[in-house]
Each structure stands twice: as C-alpha cells, then as structure tokens.
Write a protein that binds this DNA or RNA. Structure first.
Lengths: 210, 210
DNA sequence: ACGCTAACGGACGCCCCCGTCCGTTTAGGT
DNA sequence: ACCTAAACGGACGGGGGCGTCCGTTAGCGT
C-alpha cells in the first residue's frame, strides 16, 4: 500500500513471507500474541532478521496475519444486519463472533486490545455503527431488552476472552454455551430487574447511546 | 502449621515478612500474578534473598497473601447458603464473588488457575459442595433454570476474569453489570431455549451433576 | 556490654528475549 | 554463464527476570 519499494518481491522472499504469516497465524491462534518473535521465525524456517525485515514490529505482523479474521468479522456483522429478523441477526453475530474468538486466541487478544485505544483498525467504526443499528432494530422489535448498551456486547466479548481451556474443542464448546447464556441475558423479558449502570469501556466512542 | 522451625521469628524478620506480604498483596491485586518477585522485594524494601528465604516460591507467597480473600470467599458462600431464599443466596454469591475478583486481579488469577488442576486449596472441595447444594435448592424452588450446571458458574467466573479496564472503579462497575447479566441468564424463565451442552471445565470433579 | 547466630541484601551466573549488523547466498535479468 | 543487487541468517550486545551464595549487620539472650 504505502511502500515505495520495488513492487516485485523476489520469489524466495515472497515464499518466506507466506511461510512467516502461516507460522504466525498458527502460533498466535494457539498461544496468543505473547509468543516470541523468534519462535515464529523458527517455525517458519527463517532467521530472525528475515522476520524483522518483512514485519518490523509484532503489531504489523499481527495485523497482516489477522486480515482474514477481520474480514470474517465484517462478513458476520453484514450477514447479521442482512437478516430480516434483527434479533435473530444479533444472536447470530454474538454466536459467530464468540466462536471466532474462541477458535483464535491471538485474534481475540488483538481484537479486544484494539478497543480501549481507538486507532481505527480496518473499518471498525463502520462495523460498530452497523451493530448499533442492528441492536436498535432488535430493541424496536421488542426482542432485545431496552436497557441494553453497546458496551454490554463488548463486555461479553471481553468476558469470552477470559475463557481458557486446555483443548481447543472444549474451548469452543464452553464459548458456545457462554454465548447462549449471554443471549438469554440480553433477551427482553417481563421479569427482568433493572441492571446496574454500564461502565464505559470504549475510550472515546462518539455514542454508546444504543 | 507444618514448620518445624524455631517457632519464634526475630522481630525484624517478622516485620519484613509482613512488609513483603503487604507489598505482594498490593502488587498482585493491581497487576496480577505476573509481577516479578524482585518488584515485590523492592516495594517491600528488602533484598531478593530475603524474599526467597521467607517464601521459596511464588505459589507459596500467593497462597499466604490471599489467605484473607480465601476466607472472604468461604464467608460469602456460607452467607449465601444461610439465606432462607436459595435463589437470593445464589445471586449474592455470584455478585459478591465477582466483585471480589474484580477488585483483586491477582486473586482472580490464582483462584481460577487452581481449578483445572485440583490440588485442593483451602477447603475448596467443601465449598464447591456447598454451592452445589445451594444451586440444587434454588432449582427446587423453581428460580434457577433446570439445565444449570456447576460448570456454568465456573464459566462465569472465568469470563469475569477476562474483563479488564484501566481504572479499578470501572472494573468493579463492569463486573457488577456482568454479574447481573449472568444472573438474568441463570434465572428460570418460560421463554428460555435449550442451551448447547456444557463443557467440562473442572479436571476431575466427582460430580458436576447439579 | 558482649558474643552468638539468625537474618539481611548486594552481587553473581544463568537463561531467554529483543532488535540489528554484516558477511554470505541466490534469484533473475542480460 | 555471469553479474548485481536483493534477500538471507548466524551472531552480537543489551536488558531483564530468575534463584543462590556469601560476607556483613544487628537482634536478643546472658
């Protein structure tokens, strides 16, 4: 994008680049973002210098490595918004995003780490607005509790990140059940008692009114 | 307890011991269990050797440092069990434990880390059984959903641990709201749809039947 | 007041991670 | 086939945490 470099990478360089990204994806997914850069290099079968040449910082590497997941996120949100039943759409979004995070620990960390500071990763602003709209429609339809706030969704995602288990399968299972519980909590109900005030989790979101 | 040492510590040793525990409590609470041992020593105004002499491993230090919180935990559970209304008792337990964990990040980590492996910390077995009984009574009273499992409570506590914010106040606020949502999810309701199967979170708990 | 010993803490060696430099290899154009 | 520059990776110095050793300090009993 912003590189004034010779636009054609040498074939071996391109190959290494891909292998590095593969290794990064594998390790980030399994072990989170805290894996040493060298570990990634080792797994990719390259030297540390090569790794740093391609991706000067871990942030850059992570961003590239999670491009797919970010796209998946947007697709999930778009699908949810496209659903004629806004409540069903919102439920799908919650379930799918939770599962995505459960399957990929590194992405989960990166995704949530991006929230306090708002450096606008990959059209987040737009996506957040879309979800806000979806939630509003679900409220209007009387299916989503009226005191729901967008921060509640972030709260649930943060919480979902806290669920760690040894096996990946167990992780997904636990996360699924958690998402289902969250949805039950969000569903409008005649019996629900007032919630304690929501905490502001986003640093400087323009409106968390919905 | 198990020390065959000269039962009288020298006055300065005792003093240092207390200062170390204070420092550990402060740092563990604020920053979690990952603080370097040396940082604790520095804060306590002692050398590293002194720290290691008193507490040979971080595990030992943490256990001692969190004795109060562990007692608080048991008190909370006992109070909850003593409540004539089992549902109200269970709600209190959830709220209080979540708040405890929110106020003390280190304790939260230590507490949950103890779960997969079951080295029986401080009468955990007994407490777990007590909560199980409370939950069963809440179910019998028709207030707790019948497909609730004890692992769901652990799930919620794990999830609660995932909630991190910058300020401690915000943390408690967020955790409070989260606990309220969890309670709503657990409450029996005519409209609730079946949950996906619960994942086994405890390593070898004898019965998670409740 | 004195001495004995418990208790202290500075300093050491170890290991792991970080980011960079520079001599070597190799792709790809002629 | 050859040459050039792009690309590689081993190796280095720096920093920080870990757990331990040992020479020094100071509590406490006489």
């Amino acid at each position: 994008m912003t590189d004034g470099l010779p636009h054609t990478l040498r074939s071996d360089a391109l190959d290494n680049r891909e292998r590095i990204l593969d290794a990064a994806r594998a390790l980030f997914s399994a072990d989170g973002l805290d894996v040493p850069m060298r570990e990634i290099a080792r797994r990719a079968g390259v030297g540390p210098a090569t790794l740093y040449r391609h991706f000067p910082t871990k942030q850059v590497l992570a961003t590239e490595a999670f491009a797919d997941q970010l796209r998946a996120c947007r697709t999930i949100v778009d699908d949810g918004c496209a659903d004629p039943d806004p409540w069903r759409g919102l439920c799908l979004v919650i379930e799918k995003i939770c599962e995505l995070h459960a399957r990929d620990r590194g992405f989960s960390e990166a995704f949530m780490a991006a929230f306090p500071g708002a450096p606008e990763v990959g059209g987040r602003e737009y996506t957040v607005k879309a979800v806000a709209g979806l939630a509003q429609r679900a409220k209007d339809a009387g299916r989503l509790r009226s005191d729901f706030v967008l921060d509640d969704l972030i709260l649930v995602l943060m919480a979902n990140k806290g669920i760690h288990t040894r096996s990946a399968d167990t992780q997904v299972m636990a996360s699924r059940r958690f998402a289902a519980l969250a949805i039950q909590a969000f569903e409008a109900s005649p019996q629900h008692t007032p919630l304690p005030p929501a905490a502001r989790l986003t640093a400087a979101a323009p409106d968390n009114s919905v």
